[in-house]
Design a protein around this nucleic acid. Structure first.
Lengths: 189, 189
DNA sequence: CGATGGCTTGAAATCTCTCAAAGAAAGTGG
DNA sequence: CCACTTTCTTTGAGAGATTTCAAGCCATCG
């Protein structure tokens, strides 16, 4: 799906890693429900399984089940909240901190949906893609990751991220998960 | 209003310049309607006039007038869209381009609501505040503005911004207003 | 007048990028 | 299983962008 498209249905990411930095279980394009033109492209990092739903169906559902509408609306508000944090992250933190922040977010979000145990999770992503997401050069991403590893904060092998020292990483990242708006039960780090 | 607050009503900016980079006429905290905790602080740049509305009232209104709910939802989606563009702007464009981009956005948004004529508008903002918004140092903001002026792209005096060469500024900014999701009638630049 | 806030300038320090090359790892086809 | 190709990671060094620190200027305000 590309910028400029005018989709007539929304979809849900059921399985895999998608782009625009979206994770399994997310519904990245509620956008398309109320905005006619797509203003960003969506891609996949890994092979993904997605479900589609017609806009009409969804709108009808929202109309008859205000709770659902509220939940989805809430979802878009949280997205916006996350974007705000990213603006801060990308605009004001230096590379090391920025990287740490994404990693913290990744862990917490995946834990919240049961896709990460302890402080370890899959990270099937290339350094070039990370660079892209963080607005850094791939070379610099590499060096920053080495630093983080060298300081014993994380381990990274075979597409698996392990946070060895959560508290330090959190401090480096200046990470406070409030912006993710998780339920208390999900928020435990 | 501060991070961590749990507001029971929303408000509308009726007049003035508010912070989190919001402009007159916006409704910056629909957020609070569905999310319990405020995850960002709101401030004002200039003295502002705001209207308040109880959450209950608003929810009730949405329930009885789905069109209103849809419109407000749409609003939050556009916000998210703008945030996405900002992530791009702040993360990937260098200072000169970044600055040009905000100025373009400012002009277009103010024109859309009739607050800017031609390519000129009020910009009652200090360079320090700009620096803050752009994630740059105040010193650098100053230099970039000088460049832009030196190249004859803008003029800036007494809190008034005048774009002297819109097309060039747009190019420097790599600005495409699609992400603002304006109606065609509003979008004319 | 002195104080304050905002703008401007210069110079050195820092961060990050680009370019270029080489080493690992992973996938492909024989 | 091996050669081969491709993709990803790692390294070094120089160039560029941006920051910090420090100082000076200018207007406004009490």
């Amino acid at each position: 799906m590309w910028e400029g498209d005018r989709p007539s249905r929304s979809f849900v990411l059921l399985e895999g890693f998608g782009c625009t930095y979206k994770l399994t279980g997310d519904m990245p394009d509620l956008q398309s429900l109320h905005l006619k033109v797509l203003d960003n492209s969506l891609g996949t990092i890994t092979p993904c399984q997605v479900g589609f739903i017609q806009h009409e169906t969804l709108l009808d559902l929202c109309h008859r089940q205000p709770r659902i509408a509220a939940a989805l609306w809430r979802e878009t508000l949280i997205d916006a909240s996350i974007f705000r944090e990213w603006i801060l992250n990308v605009g004001r933190r230096e590379a090391r901190s920025r990287m740490a922040h994404v990693l913290c977010e990744l862990i917490v979000r995946l834990r919240a949906v049961g896709l990460a145990q302890d402080h370890r999770c899959k990270l099937p992503i290339t350094q070039v893609e990370m660079a892209d997401a963080l607005g850094l050069s791939a070379v610099h991403v590499n060096r920053v990751l080495q630093e983080l590893r060298g300081d014993g904060l994380i381990r990274l092998d075979g597409g698996t991220l392990t946070v060895l020292d959560w508290e330090s990483l959190r401090q480096v990242a200046d990470f406070d998960p409030a912006y993710l708006h998780l339920q208390r039960s999900q928020a435990a780090a």
